[in-house]
Amino acid sequence: MDLLSLVHIILPLLIVVAAGFAVLLRDLISCTIALAAMSLLLSLEFYILHAPDVAIAEAGVGACITTAIIILAISMTKREEDER
């Protein structure tokens, strides 16, 4: 097994781990950072699948502008998730 196919296996697992952190964490700012990390890993996955156009768009929109919009929305409400 060469290095590239190993990366093709490891990177989707890291994406799933980051998405799980985004769901499970209590602090909403931490959730947003986990979502941004997921977006960045997804853009890396697009890049190694030979789609650099989509990778640049994903890195710009997903990792920066979405994070900023969600942080603005959190600053309108409160930072901690409610305990049920």
Partner: peptide
Amino acid sequence: PGGGFQGGAV
């Protein structure tokens, strides 16, 4: 690679 949308997003 890239174009209007991608560079505009950056």
